[in-house]
Design a protein around this nucleic acid. Sequence first.
DNA 1: CGCAATAACGCAACATTGTTGCAGGAGCAA
DNA 2: TTGCTCCTGCAACAATGTTGCGTTATTGCG
Lengths: 150, 150
Amino acid sequence: MSSSTHADRIRATGARATPARLAVLRLLESADRALSHHDVETALDGTGIDRVTLYRVLDWMVEAGLAHRVTDAQRVFRFSIANAASPTHSAHAHFRCDACGKVFCLDDIPATPPALPRGFASRAVELCVTGHCDRCKQEDSAPAAQTNKD
Amino acid sequence: MSSSTHADRIRATGARATPARLAVLRLLESADRALSHHDVETALDGTGIDRVTLYRVLDWMVEAGLAHRVTDAQRVFRFSIANAASPTHSAHAHFRCDACGKVFCLDDIPATPPALPRGFASRAVELCVTGHCDRCKQEDSAPAAQTNKD
DNA sequence: CGCAATAACGCAACATTGTTGCAGGAGCAA
DNA sequence: TTGCTCCTGCAACAATGTTGCGTTATTGCG
């Protein structure tokens, strides 16, 4: 059963498999993009899970290595599931759509070697591309529907 | 006089040369890194310039092309003077120190052409490197002073 | 120079996003 | 089942940024 797999993955980190953690883990896993706290809150509306609990679960997921956290240009944190295949995300890339505001993970980036000033030590590199996603680009040509802001 | 040059640069954008704009323009120009609103507020403390005015001046500077705005990992906006030599900042790079939190502009970056999914259109690329700056790296070896958070 | 138009300011209140403290409830092991 | 402890829910708070509105002051013009 998929549920027990999720619970096991949570317990494998030494934490307890609670409904909130299961729900967020499943949600992030099924998402094709990085979700903000607000996205998660909306998606899990009706489950009775508290706002603060979501913040804590998301923080825990990052700490446990189950998720990545990025800061988008609107000064909100966004969370994406951590791929077990790419454990070290020292270099990570994202795409943010100017039109709909959604953030997508770009996995295959050329690990850009940054030229730093003398004495500077690099730990991680984040690359963020902005523009229009495929859906919004199509709507540019045919300005019918407006999918702005989720 | 340098002052009149600043005022002229402001008026050249069609705006009025007010004390707040002059002060912020001079401050950003003399800064060797990107300043947050809080940095600016602290630096201009005692001038009687209002918090909201600073927000408005900073926004105006970005709109007028006199400054760049970046969002750092702590979800705060930071502002750096726009170099007249590099008018198009479609590709911009920054370095954020994990220890002291300061953000530096890296001007010479290899404009990495990112491989986007089909249908995605790129408008701008932002590259953010995190790690330790030269000063904090030195203090790593000799843990005497603590320059954390300004 | 003095005046009028209006851009810009200051103040207060509000919005959004995230954090902290604490008492009670729930997951897990024995 | 029981108990330990982690986790949750609630409320209050903190940080950052925005909006509305009446007042001030910059600037062009007579």
